[in-house]
Design a protein around this nucleic acid. Structure first.
Lengths: 138, 138
DNA sequence: TAATTTTACTTTCGATTCGGAAGCAAATAT
DNA sequence: ATATTTGCTTCCGAATCGAAAGTAAAATTA
C-alpha cells in the first residue's frame, strides 16, 4: 500500500547526488548492511538491529529498496506470515560504499566504534579485495 | 548563530550508522564533492551547483561540516565579506566513499549520469589507486 | 561621498518526513 | 478455541525540509 514509486526526479546528472536521491537516508544502507552480514532476513530480524528502526520506517524502506531492485521479497517456505528479504547483486554491489564508511569511521571515530568493526577495517587496509570478497562472494 | 553542535547521540557503535549520523543527509557529501573537484570554494560557489541547494540549508551544512572538522572557513585576502572554505585531510578522506557512489551509479544508473562521470568511473575500474590520487593528492 | 550591488547569512512558512506508540488482520501456536 | 506472533498501517507531535523574502555589513559604482 505504502509502496513508494521510485520517481525519476533526480536533482542532477551527477552520480553522487543521484545515488543519494535513491538511498541517501539514515536507514537504507543499514538495512543493506544487515543483509550483507547475515544474509536472508525477516522483518522482525531488522527491527532487532541496535539502531532500533521503527516499524513504519522499516516497512517504507523495504518497499523502496525492493522497488529499486536492491532487495527481493519472497515467501517463507512454511510460514505464510513471514517474508524473506534477500540482497540482489545490485544491492550487494553497494557493499564497497559501506566498506569505505567503515574505513573512514575507523580512522576518525575510532574510540567510538565496535571492536569487530575495527578488525574488519584492518582487513580492508591490508587487503581490500580480499576483505570485500569476504562478504560479497557468495 | 545556527551553529549546530555535533551532539554525540550516535544510534549505535556501528561505524556505518555513526558515519550516517554525522553526514548521512542529501547535501553534505555534495558539498565535499565540490571541494574535491574545485578546491577552495565560496558560499556563492556552492549555491551555483546543479542541485540548487537553498541558502538556509547550505549555511546549516557548512556550520556542521566545520564543527565536524571536515572543512575550514577562512577570510578572503582582500574581501572581508567573502569566506573561503577548504577541505581538511579528514574531509578529503571521504573521497573514497564518494568514489564508490560514482562506481555504483555508473554501473546501475549509467544512462542517466554525466559523460565525465562515466569516464572517471572507467579510470576507477582500471586503476583505483591512481584514480583516487587524481583528486586526493594535493 | 552617496547610492547601489554583492555576499553570507537568517527568518518565515507551508510541506514533507520523522520516530514512537498504538492498532490491526491474518496466520500460527497453544 | 484462545493467545500470540508477524508484517504492516495509522496516528500524532516534533523535526527537518525547500523556497522565498529579508537583513546587515562590506564592496563597488557613480
Amino acid at each position: 500500500m505504502k509502496a513508494k514509486k521510485s520517481e525519476n526526479n533526480f536533482r542532477s546528472d551527477c552520480p553522487i547526488s543521484s545515488a543519494l536521491d535513491l538511498f541517501g537516508d539514515k536507514w537504507s544502507l543499514l538495512i543493506i548492511r544487515d543483509m550483507v552480514y547475515f544474509g536472508e532476513r525477516t522483518f522482525k530480524d531488522f527491527t532487532n538491529a541496535a539502531e532500533r528502526i521503527s516499524t513504519a520506517r522499516l516497512s517504507d524502506r523495504l518497499c523502496k529498496l525492493e522497488n529499486l531492485g536492491l532487495i527481493t521479497k519472497s515467501n517463507h517456505p512454511t510460514n505464510k506470515k513471514i517474508y524473506l528479504y534477500n540482497l540482489t547483486a545490485k544491492g550487494m554491489d553497494l557493499f564497497p560504499v559501506i566498506a569505505e564508511y567503515i574505513r573512514w569511521s575507523n580512522k576518525y571515530l575510532n574510540d567510538h566504534i565496535a571492536k569487530e568493526a575495527k578488525e574488519y577495517a584492518k582487513m580492508l587496509e591490508n587487503d581490500r579485495p580480499a576483505a570485500l570478497n569476504h562478504f560479497m562472494k557468495r
